[in-house]
């Protein structure tokens, strides 16, 4: 305990500069476990495919390449063809682009709505908080998928509707988390100290509260993304999500499901692609949570 450094140096003219952000990131990454690396590599591959699908794919997204539906695997068609004679492999690559893009947009929107309102509720408290919290409670009283089905039956299934509906419904969960995490931060003495100093709302929000809820929110972003991704895939699988001819993993499973009864597992590949990504994201989130929770009680 007597480690308090008591020897002050002679007064320096300049004070040493900060360590850069990149150096910190690299130091952390080097210590990541294998599962996290696996997750990050998988995610990187998905992102690469999503960006470059049109250049990697051997055929067009909805190009009919064969007169025969359900062709078996061959050199020309690595994973065979689908029910309309389109190349499965090509559609799998394009699927990454569509499914991932839509899920990402939805999650971002959900965080913008839910995260924003959650932090506002925690700072203002009082009736603002009451109003928002009760509204969210009511929305959450209806199971999410069921609510989505009602809304889709009214507004119809378009990509725009899908993104808005799922984002609004999912933002309720983001709201609850953001609110409760922010509440824990707002009661801290350092926030009180900032108020006593006379700091304004903007400083308290961005300098005191936000940096402390970021790790939790980033981890939650991963988990919410998985959930949104699974919900959209499920809706597409039910034929209520992303509509043909857009290539999408959920619909691809449904359209080709009959093959399974013949013992062919090709239709499971898009489903497997969904599963692999969610597993990968979960691995990274797991490590991240471990990492950030460890940072706090570091001595």
């Amino acid at each position: 305990m007597s480690v308090d450094q008591t020897a002050p140096r002679s007064a320096p003219r300049t004070v040493k500069a900060r360590r850069t952000v990149m150096q910190n990131v690299w130091r952390t990454l080097r210590k990541a476990p294998l599962s996290a690396w696996f997750g990050m590599i998988v995610i990187a591959i998905y992102i690469f495919v999503a960006f470059f699908a049109p250049w990697i794919a051997p055929y067009g997204e909805s190009e009919v390449v064969s007169q025969q539906p359900f062709e078996v695997w061959s050199w020309a068609h690595w994973l065979g063809t689908d029910q309309l004679g389109r190349d499965m492999f090509t559609r799998l690559l394009f699927g990454a682009r569509n499914t991932l893009g839509i899920a990402l947009a939805t999650t971002l929107l959900a965080f913008a709505i839910g995260g924003g309102l959650g932090i506002i509720a925690s700072i203002f408290r009082g009736w603002v908080d009451q109003l928002l919290s009760r509204a969210v409670d009511t929305l959450m009283a209806i199971p999410q998928l069921i609510f989505a089905l009602i809304l889709l039956s009214i507004f119809g299934s378009s990509v725009k509707n899908l993104i808005i509906i799922i984002a609004v419904l999912d933002s309720t969960r983001v709201f609850r988390l953001a609110r409760s995490v922010a509440m824990n931060v707002v009661v801290m003495d350092y926030v009180e100290a900032a108020k006593l100093r006379g700091e304004g709302l903007v400083w308290i929000l961005f300098k005191e509260v936000l940096p402390n809820i970021m790790p939790t929110m980033v981890a939650e972003f991963g988990l919410r993304f998985c959930f949104v991704f699974l919900t959209i895939s499920s809706l597409s699988f039910l034929g209520l999500g992303i509509q043909p001819p857009t290539a999408d993993w959920g619909s691809m499973v449904r359209e080709n499901a009959t093959l399974i009864t013949y013992g062919d597992f090709t239709p499971l590949m898009p489903a497997g692609a969904i599963a692999l990504l969610t597993v990968a994201v979960n691995f990274v989130v797991d490590w991240f949570l471990h990492k950030t929770s460890g940072l706090r009680d570091e001595k």
């Binding site: 305990m1 308090d4 020897a7 002050p8 007064a11 040493k16 940072l295 570091e298």
Partner: peptide, 20 residues
């Protein structure tokens, strides 16, 4: 200096300091 701490601590996070 006034609180008798070394300037080397200037870039530490609170988690990297002792209670005192």
């Amino acid at each position: 200096e006034q609180i008798e701490l070394s300037e080397d601590l200037i870039d530490r996070l609170p988690g990297e300091l002792s209670g005192g």
